[in-house]
């Protein structure tokens, strides 16, 4: 698949269960788009913090700020989106201040669930249309969407509202959102998962519901943190053969030739880590098979990165892999 085609819809929504690396994948996707000459905005939805930490900056506000060359970041807060909406639509700036600090949005959104989501999606529409002015005229908007459980309600909110209202400006506006979400040229939903039991089964359910119940445009499913194969089959056999030996001579000799002295403990550790990797890989392989089997969308595997807590260089690495893998689709 051509990368340009992959990056074509202006809105790339990224979602997945909590803890699967949704924000990391969103960030990598944003970097890929920026590398291909796009002005990118990555939008968190009512969250605090993971995204700016990846880019090594401070908290993000409602107004987009440049966090890496060509990449802007922002945090869409429903309360602020409502204030902006009332201001733009009804010139009610003063009144809107009254409730931004109270429970007001809580009440209204409890009374009419989905309204919060509409507000957030409305802001995304506003950005998509380039209504925010020149500085906010983005080519790509990556939405780091709410965790999967909530995501389905998040994305189906406009459909619900359009069903409920027959006429009026709000009905018209919610129709605009439905059109935006249903048009494959304008938006696409990418899912992120881990090669583990719970995330995989949840992803299968989400993907099914997205495509068949809500009628949105599925993109790829990113399987994150996949351990890469270390040994060829021959090498595995050699290793298995020497495993029985507590002090494998062959490896010791090879080491000695480059001036490396390996004691028994070292050799043992080498073998155990190789074994550990293999064991985890076979667990992952089982779940990846289940994922591919149950899915119509393409699966893009992203490698496990040997670090704890990712930073920008790691995101760059993931972006490299993403470019490569998407081209192979």
């Amino acid at each position: 698949m051509l990368l340009d085609e992959f990056l074509d819809p202006k809105i790339l929504i990224v979602s997945g269960k909590g803890g699967v690396g949704k924000t990391t994948v969103s960030a990598a996707l944003a970097l890929v788009a920026a590398r291909h000459g796009r002005k990118v905005c990555i939008a968190e939805v009512d969250q605090k913090g993971t995204l700016p930490r990846l880019f090594g900056g401070g908290a993000l506000g409602y107004d987009p700020a440049e966090i890496a060359p060509g990449v802007w970041g922002m945090n869409i807060v429903p309360e602020q989106a409502l204030a902006e909406y009332l201001d733009v639509q009804y010139h009610m700036k003063r009144v809107s201040k009254v409730f931004t600090n109270t429970h007001f949005v809580d009440y209204i959104t409890t009374a009419a669930p989905g309204l919060k989501d509409i507000l957030v999606l409305g802001k995304i529409w506003f950005l998509e249309q380039g209504r925010g002015g020149g500085a906010q005229d983005f080519d790509t908007i990556v939405v780091d969407a709410p965790a999967a459980g909530h995501m389905l309600t998040f994305l189906s909110a406009p459909m619900g509202l359009s069903d409920a209202l027959r006429v009026g400006p709000v009905r018209r506006q919610s129709d605009w959102l439905v059109e935006m979400l249903r048009d494959a040229k304008r938006s696409r939903v990418h899912l992120v998962t881990l090669p583990e039991e719970m995330p995989v089964s949840e992803t299968l359910e989400t993907s099914e519901a997205l495509t068949h119940k809500i009628g949105l445009n599925p993109g790829a499913v990113f399987a994150n943190a996949v351990y890469q194969q270390l040994l060829t089959q021959d090498e595995q056999e050699t290793l298995d053969a020497v495993m029985g030996d507590a002090n494998p001579r062959e490896l010791k000799i090879a080491a000695a030739e480059v001036g490396l002295r390996l004691d028994k403990e070292d050799l043992n550790a080498l073998v155990r880590y190789a074994h550990f990797l293999e064991a985890r890989r076979s667990i992952q392989a089982k779940h990846l098979r289940a994922l591919r089997k149950g899915l119509e969308d393409p699966v893009v595997e992203l490698p496990f990165l040997f670090s704890a807590g990712l930073a920008l260089p790691d995101i760059e690495t993931l972006a490299d892999v993403m470019e490569e893998k998407v081209a192979e689709l």
Binding site: L230, L231, L239, E250, A254, V258, L270, Y273, A274
Partner: peptide
């Protein structure tokens, strides 16, 4: 190096 050496290189990298 030979097959054993290459295997060892991988094991060391992985470790």
């Amino acid at each position: 190096g030979d097959a054993d050496a290459r295997l060892l290189a991988k094991l060391l990298d992985n470790h």
